[in-house]
Amino acid sequence: MSGQVVLVLDDEEPMRRLCGRVLASMGLEPLFAGTLCEALEKLTGLERLDALVADMRLPDGCGLEAVRAARAKFPLAGVLIITAFVDGDEEAGELAALAGGADGVLLKPFAVESLEAAVKCRLDLGA
């Protein structure tokens, strides 16, 4: 799976860096976006996307918009939502994410192994 491109969208720099480290250790090529705007720009410019790892709650919008954009351009890419957005109901949040086109949801804080497993699963799905 070398050279596979994964876009990490999260407004928190440490979270982006953590995901980046995990993905890189898996031999993937991580790209980063800190806002929805930035993510949409990156998606427009990209020629290949294998997976999107996106936060839901962003300063300039909802991560699901990026999911929609990614799905439109890269229908085979795996999409994983990572969120601490709970609002008292994980199930509803998860359903919303899945309805918005995500393949899976990972709740923050998550164990590194969970992220590894989830991304691997998405890539397999997308591949």
């Binding site: 440490p14 979270m15 480290r21 709970v86 923050k108 804080p109």
Partner: peptide, 16 residues
């Protein structure tokens, strides 16, 4: 939400 975000970083980097 506010705690879980940074906590994700702390836990993740500790694991790393």
């Amino acid at each position: 939400h506010e705690i879980n975000n940074p906590l994700g970083g702390i836990m993740g980097f500790a694991e790393m």
